[in-house]
């Protein structure tokens, strides 16, 4: 087990360097993307500022707690781009043109190879940076913040990444049957967009759906709740269980689906 982990860490490093070299060949693109991301995040902050001009809390969340939430979404998205996100965006092309073949013949797990082949630092770097800035800014304005919540926050961030990855695996596995992935990734994009709002706004059946079926609630709300002292242990543990289950189901569905790959010729 340890051997496998060190092997994949080495591979990750090698692929990341490779991607960085590739990114640098298109430097102007790099800068545009960063500026665009910062712009997009600013829009959500302004939106929240306007809303909070009229109310003190949304579903119990204060303005600064919401800022941490938005920042957390940015951090999770950056983490996703640094691991698996762009691989899934390219998956449809790989399958349609048959270049997915390469992922089937290398002595690496196909899902991890796909992820590492398309690592991207630049694509949401702006969001990552502004995310960290917003979280730090939010923390500085909290009055009940304690250092203890920080390790839990980090742990839950990785849990969110697992949920996000598991969900993406499940949705993208459909591509082996329908061949085009554009629409599928729009679903995932929509799902991530919605994660900007506190999951506490959902009630009743909505809460069940957005926790267990489409786990939007887990992605940003749970880590942000932990950091702002709003999360109970019971829900933290439940989130971890959901995270592991989603990853497990995702990997299983993926394994079943690649058997259906019918490599295009030419």
């Amino acid at each position: 087990m340890l051997r496998i982990i060190t092997r994949y860490l080495r591979l990750y490093k090698a692929f990341l360097f490779q991607s960085l070299k590739e990114d640098m060949t298109y430097r102007s693109n790099f800068l545009t993307l960063v500026v665009m991301d910062i712009g997009l995040v600013s829009i959500s902050v302004i939106l929240f500022k306007v809303i909070y001009g009229h109310v003190n809390t949304i579903a119990g969340w204060t303005f600064h707690q919401s800022i941490i939430l938005i920042g957390t979404v940015g951090i999770v998205r950056e983490m996703a781009y640094l691991t698996f996100r762009r691989g899934f965006l390219e998956l449809g092309n790989h399958i349609r043109t048959g270049t997915f073949d390469i992922f089937m013949v290398r002595p690496i797990a196909s899902n991890l190879h796909l992820a590492m082949r398309h690592l991207s630092l630049s694509e949401s770097l702006g969001e990552g940076i502004t995310g960290i800035v917003l979280v730090v800014y939010g923390i500085l304005h909290l009055n009940n913040w304690s250092w203890i919540s920080f390790p839990l926050y980090i742990l839950l961030l990785f849990n969110s990444l697992m949920v996000y990855y598991g969900f993406s695996l499940i949705i993208n596995s459909i591509v082996f049957w329908v061949v085009r992935s554009q629409e599928l990734n729009t679903i995932i994009y929509f799902f991530m967009e919605t994660s900007r709002y506190p999951a506490d706004i959902y009630r009743g059946i909505g809460k069940v759906i957005f926790t267990f079926i489409i786990p939007i609630g887990i992605i940003a709300t749970v880590p942000a709740s932990a950091l702002t002292g709003r999360l109970g242990w019971d829900f933290a543990i439940l989130s971890l269980i959901i995270g592991i289950s989603f990853l497990g189901i995702g990997l299983f569905v993926w394994k079943m689906s690649i058997e259906h790959y019918s490599s295009a010729s030419g």
């Binding site: 090698a14 692929f15 060949t25 290398r106 030419g266």
Partner: peptide, 28 residues
């Protein structure tokens, strides 16, 4: 190994040498 005339396996924007070093990691 499989080589396909119509499917490029090297990294398109980088020198082949870079793909070689990556293969060293992949194949240990």
């Amino acid at each position: 190994s499989i080589v396909m005339g119509q499917k490029n396996q090297l990294w398109w924007d980088l020198p082949a040498q870079e793909s070689f070093t990556l293969n060293r990691e992949i194949y240990e």
